[in-house]
């Protein structure tokens, strides 16, 4: 059973998640104009920057986050930005979109100079997120759980972060049970995606190095 307080928390987080989206202009550019590899690279870096800003705005709305030590706030965001961005992209790509949009976005990523060894795990992750058919509440809470990971580098007060993360996990666990009564493993599957995200984070660092060199 989800308590009234948990329901209020969930609403707050979903509202914040929906409110903070990448600017419409970017989305439009991504879908409308044809670019070569170099322009795709530049566009994707701009979008990535915008996604980090969106992530920060969302995170500021998570109750308790701004009460954490300021440097810990930065450490958490720095440690989770890549994972949260992949998560958001996966959710965008698994949304229902007009015909051809998903293919166009995929093409843009594939033709931006990223080598195939990184593209494969990236798209495999996008696919595995799509298969979960998460509701908005689950997406928003999973993103909050990702940001509030206590063992990121340079986090000093891990216990304070853990308490916040536990609050989110508790709501998410209850929500999964309510949303997917036929699938008792659903919550565990969501947490499994977080492990997959950590692997992607590792790939991402290597990918950036090779991308810059190219």
């Amino acid at each position: 059973e989800i308590t009234k307080e948990q329901q209020a928390l969930m609403k707050l987080i979903v509202d914040a998640y929906n409110k903070h989206q990448i600017p419409h202009d970017f989305a439009k550019k991504l879908l409308q104009e044809q670019y070569g590899a170099e322009e795709n690279f530049l566009l994707l870096t701009e979008v990535a920057t915008s996604q980090v800003q969106v992530l920060v705005e969302f995170t500021k709305s998570i109750p308790g986050f701004l009460s954490l030590d300021h440097e810990d706030q930065i450490a958490l965001l720095k440690g989770s930005a890549v994972e949260a961005t992949y998560l958001r992209s996966a959710q965008v790509l698994s949304k229902k979109m007009p015909t051809g949009h998903v293919q166009l976005l995929e093409e843009r990523i594939r033709k931006s100079g990223i080598s195939e060894e990184f593209i494969t795990p990236m798209f495999s992750f996008y696919k595995s997120i799509g298969e979960l058919h998460m509701v908005q509440e689950e997406q928003a809470l999973l993103t909050a759980v990702t940001v509030l990971t206590p063992d990121r580098p340079y986090v000093k007060d891990q216990q304070a972060v853990e308490r916040l993360q536990e609050t989110m996990l508790d709501v998410l666990r209850k929500l999964c049970a309510l949303q997917h009564p036929q699938e008792p493993q659903y919550f565990a599957r969501l947490l499994g995606r977080l492990t997959e995200l950590r692997t992607l984070n590792h790939y991402h660092a290597e990918m950036l190095t090779s991308w810059r060199t190219n």
Partner: peptide, 21 residues
């Protein structure tokens, strides 16, 4: 350009609220 700004700078600026910088 934004692509030359480090991740930490982007985060610090966004946390302080001056996105337009």
């Amino acid at each position: 350009p934004a692509s030359n700004l480090g991740l930490e700078d982007i985060i610090r600026k966004a946390l302080m609220g001056n996105l337009e910088d």
